[in-house]
Nucleic acid binder design. Structure first.
Length: 352
DNA sequence: AACGCGGGGAC
DNA sequence: GTCCCAGCGTT
């Protein structure tokens, strides 16, 4: 890459950023820079939109204002605070990392790549983001926005995983020595507002004069899209159990796998549709079971789930090991989105 | 290199 | 409905 592009691109981006930056809660002035808040925001923002993160960031940092406080909390509290945000291993890893930072780094988030990358939940992107945004160091930072911008500017028509080394090199070269944090955030804002995946607004782009794809009308072809596999459909029966004290039965999922440690209403195994057996329904307890009209559908990252809900009333609470909650308390529980869909479906299809 | 891992907004 | 999002850990 030519030196003139390197210098001028970051200058253009910083000028653009000063005029167009979004006002986000984790964007502090220099004197208020807080590596802890940078870390939490970057973890929350992994594969998650800014709009979804904002309320969670406020709640989380209000409840745990320091790493020390966070390291002293328990995992259930953290999982509850994360419920609804998705990708729950991030919450587990934050807890693990907080303990390590407190124990081994005197409550200070490391300021070098080799130590950062060792922490659970911090990979190449997040390490670079913390180095630039929290510590104003020059680093290679590649998120999906910056990746797309570089591929377009350079007119790279190969699949991105074939040019990984090249992208790392270019992203570091483009990163300025001063205001590196502002620069990477400028690039991400540009990717979000201008250099979008589809129908980019090139006429508004401050760096279009550096862009091979703009000049050659290739922005709709770069980055090349790879076909993704269709996701499978799973089916299951979910059991809505009401006790003779008018409370609802829940249990906590195991701390590994899907929705780790989250509360749920019990269900049968989630079976892939083609393998569905016609065996008799195995209810968790004897009783007068009745199906509820309709199904609850929910799409996860790698499969879709269709739930048929069955309801049983007047159950003795001592017959089941788990958590019993009053119906009025259900909406206030920390449930994953799937289970929120479930209780809304039940409430709207029964007349309690 | 491919997969498991959530949820929601834009279109 | 499909695509995408400030990715990471595991296999």
């Amino acid at each position: 890459m030519k030196v003139s592009i390197k210098d001028n691109l970051s200058k253009k981006m910083l000028l653009w950023y000063d005029k167009n930056k979004r006002d986000l809660p984790w964007r502090k002035s220099k004197k208020d820079l807080n590596p802890y808040q940078t870390w939490i925001s970057e973890i929350m923002l992994q594969q998650t939109t800014v709009e979804a993160v904002i309320p969670y960031f406020h709640k989380f940092t209000a409840k745990w204002p320091t790493i020390k406080k966070l390291s002293e909390s328990n995992i259930e509290e953290i999982m509850d605070a994360w419920s609804g945000l998705g990708y729950y291993s991030r919450a587990k890893n934050i807890h693990k990392a907080a303990k390590i930072i407190t124990k081994e780094y005197n409550d200070q988030i490391p300021n070098n790549y080799d130590e950062l990358i060792k922490l659970p939940g911090i990979g190449p992107y997040t390490a670079g983001a913390i180095l630039t945004i929290a510590y104003d160091k020059k680093a290679s930072v590649i998120d999906s926005n910056i990746e797309r911008i570089i591929l377009r500017i350079q007119g790279i028509k190969k699949p991105k995983d074939k040019v990984k080394k090249e992208l790392i090199k270019i992203s570091e070269e483009l990163c300025p020595d001063i205001r590196s944090g502002d620069y990477v955030q400028a690039m991400m804002d540009l990717g979000s507002a201008i250099c979008k995946p589809n129908n980019p607004k090139c006429n508004l782009c401050p760096i279009k004069k550096f862009c091979y794809s703009y000049k050659n009308n290739l922005t709709n072809l770069i980055p090349i899209k790879k076909t993704r596999k269709p996701i499978k459909i799973r089916k299951a029966r979910l059991f809505w159990i009401v006790s003779n004290q008018n409370r609802i039965f829940l249990r906590r999922r195991p701390l590994t796998g899907l929705l780790p440690g989250m509360l749920e209403f019990p269900s049968s195994d989630w079976i892939i549709k083609s393998k569905e057996s016609k065996k008799e329904i195995l209810f968790p307890i004897k009783g007068n079971w009745k199906p509820i009209t309709g199904n609850v559908m929910h799409t996860f990252s790698h499969f879709q789930l269709s739930l048929k809900i069955y309801i049983c009333r007047d159950v003795n609470e001592k017959k089941l090991e788990g958590i019993w909650k009053k119906e009025n308390d259900i909406p206030n529980l920390h449930l994953p989105s799937l289970m929120k869909k479930v209780y809304k479906h039940v409430f709207s299809n029964t007349n309690n």
